[in-house]
Simulated assay, not measured.
Amino acid sequence: MGANRELINGIGVAPDHYLPLTAKDLREGRDPAMAAAAARPIGWRISEDRG
């Protein structure tokens, strides 16, 4: 369920930051989007990035 109580099953949610996944990432088992998310401090908010 989305922020406005709309159903998002099967649709998904657009990312705030897009990090492309390359063939090299796949070969080497890397996920740049997951790495970027894991590097964020707990409690981080998008508004903090946008200053």
Score class of each variant (00 low, 15 high):
28 E>I: 02
48 E>I: 06
24 K>M: 11
20 P>M: 00
29 G>V: 01
46 I>L: 15
41 P>M: 09
44 W>S: 13
33 A>L: 05
50 R>H: 13
31 D>Y: 04
29 G>Q: 04
46 I>A: 14
51 G>C: 10
11 I>Q: 11
40 R>N: 15
12 G>V: 06
15 P>D: 02
10 G>S: 04
15 P>F: 01
48 E>Y: 04
7 L>I: 09
13 V>H: 02
34 M>T: 05
47 S>C: 11
24 K>V: 14
8 I>H: 08
18 Y>W: 08
9 N>E: 10
30 R>H: 07
40 R>V: 10
20 P>D: 00
11 I>R: 09
20 P>H: 01
6 E>A: 12
24 K>L: 13
2 G>Q: 05
17 H>D: 09
20 P>Q: 00
13 V>A: 04
9 N>C: 12
51 G>F: 10
36 A>K: 03
36 A>M: 06
38 A>T: 02
8 I>P: 02
8 I>S: 09
13 V>F: 00
38 A>M: 11
30 R>A: 10
49 D>W: 05
16 D>Q: 03
42 I>Y: 08
29 G>E: 03
2 G>E: 04
37 A>C: 07
1 M>F: 04
23 A>G: 13
8 I>G: 07
28 E>S: 06
44 W>I: 13
18 Y>N: 06
43 G>Q: 06
43 G>C: 09
51 G>K: 13
17 H>N: 09
40 R>M: 15
41 P>W: 11
1 M>A: 09
43 G>P: 07
17 H>P: 07
18 Y>S: 08
44 W>E: 12
49 D>Q: 11
22 T>P: 00
11 I>G: 04
21 L>P: 00
3 A>H: 12
5 R>G: 07
1 M>H: 06
50 R>Q: 12
37 A>R: 03
7 L>H: 06
46 I>G: 08
47 S>E: 13
9 N>D: 14
15 P>I: 02
45 R>P: 08
45 R>H: 14
32 P>M: 05
31 D>A: 13
31 D>V: 00
16 D>A: 06
9 N>V: 08
42 I>K: 13
48 E>G: 13
28 E>H: 04
40 R>H: 11
7 L>G: 14
18 Y>E: 05
22 T>Y: 02
29 G>L: 02
20 P>Y: 01
18 Y>F: 14
16 D>Y: 02
51 G>I: 07
14 A>W: 02
38 A>K: 10
51 G>D: 15
6 E>S: 10
17 H>W: 12
39 A>S: 14
10 G>M: 01
17 H>L: 15
47 S>G: 08
26 L>R: 14
18 Y>Q: 06
48 E>W: 04
9 N>H: 11
50 R>D: 12
27 R>Q: 12
25 D>E: 07
25 D>H: 12
38 A>R: 10
47 S>Q: 12
50 R>E: 15
44 W>R: 07
42 I>A: 15
14 A>G: 10
43 G>V: 09
23 A>R: 09
20 P>K: 00
31 D>T: 02
37 A>Q: 04
27 R>L: 08
15 P>C: 04
23 A>I: 06
27 R>P: 00
51 G>S: 14
29 G>F: 00
40 R>F: 07
32 P>H: 01
5 R>M: 08
6 E>G: 05
15 P>W: 00
45 R>L: 15
49 D>M: 12
42 I>V: 12
